[in-house]
Computed example of a mutant assay.
Amino acid sequence: MNAWQFLLAFLPLGLALAFVLGAVGAAIGAGAAIANIKVAKKDLSTSLKALAMIGIDLGAAAVWLVVAILLNIAVGS
């Protein structure tokens, strides 16, 4: 993998570090990182790979936000 592919592949793991170091962020980030690695290995154009990986990263952040909101409602904080 190229350096930019490595960066985009593991960017979702930042969810675990940036947001409370919780298991939810780590699980979502790990799933997104695995998806990004699969995209990086596909025979696609560079721009399509980059767009797909950024989309996965943004999707992971959105999923984390929804889960965090739902957990917050469930706990009643």
Rank of each mutant, 00 (worst) to 15 (best):
M1I: 12
M1H: 06
N2Q: 13
W4H: 10
W4V: 08
L8V: 07
L8P: 08
F10R: 01
L11C: 00
P12M: 03
P12G: 04
L13M: 09
G14D: 03
L15I: 02
A16H: 03
L17D: 06
L17A: 10
A18E: 12
F19I: 06
V20S: 08
L21I: 03
L21R: 10
L21E: 04
L21F: 12
L21Q: 14
A26K: 00
A27F: 12
I28H: 04
I28Q: 04
G29Q: 12
G29S: 04
G31I: 11
I34E: 01
N36S: 08
K38W: 02
V39F: 10
V39R: 13
A40L: 03
A40M: 04
A40V: 11
K42D: 11
K42C: 09
K42Y: 04
D43T: 12
T46D: 11
T46Q: 14
S47G: 14
L48H: 12
K49M: 02
K49P: 04
A50L: 14
L51E: 12
A52I: 15
A52K: 11
I54V: 15
I54R: 09
I54Q: 10
G55W: 12
G55N: 07
D57V: 13
D57I: 09
L58E: 07
G59K: 10
G59S: 10
A60H: 11
A60W: 15
A60C: 05
A61V: 05
A62Q: 01
A62P: 00
A62N: 00
V63D: 00
W64F: 15
W64L: 11
L65W: 13
L65R: 07
A68Y: 09
A68Q: 06
A68L: 07
A68G: 06
A68S: 14
L71H: 15
L71S: 12
N72T: 11
N72Y: 10
N72H: 14
V75C: 01
G76P: 04
G76V: 03
S77H: 03
